[in-house]
Amino acid sequence: MDFFHAHQAQHYLVLAAMLFALGAAGVVLRRNAIIVLMSIEVMLNAVNLTFLAFSRFPLVPNSPMGSFLSGHAAVFFVIATAAAEASVGLAIIIAVFRSRTSVNVDEFDTLKL
């Protein structure tokens, strides 16, 4: 791989993997539910980056979907879904905070019973 001719799929994929790992680490390590949600946003962005990278640098000559731009459409849907997820997730955090005055995920364990 040519590090200085940065116009290849691998650069973007490795960057996406790094961001994904960063987000996953945040999800696993942090207790604060808001930060967990933001880490999830980072992971989603890493996925988006992968979609766009493969859309720009396809590995096959013809897209099975008809156009490589379907990757862009997928990203569009991910963004919309992320907005929905963030709104519902934050609403849940507010509701839980009302009853428990805490946003720490390791204290949300009532579902186990």
């Binding site: 919309a80 929905a84 997820e85 709104s87 934050l90 609403a91 509701a95």
Partner: peptide, 12 residues
Amino acid sequence: LLVAVVAAVVVA
């Protein structure tokens, strides 16, 4: 998105 808006209102 519509469902999410309604759900967010109901939950919060």
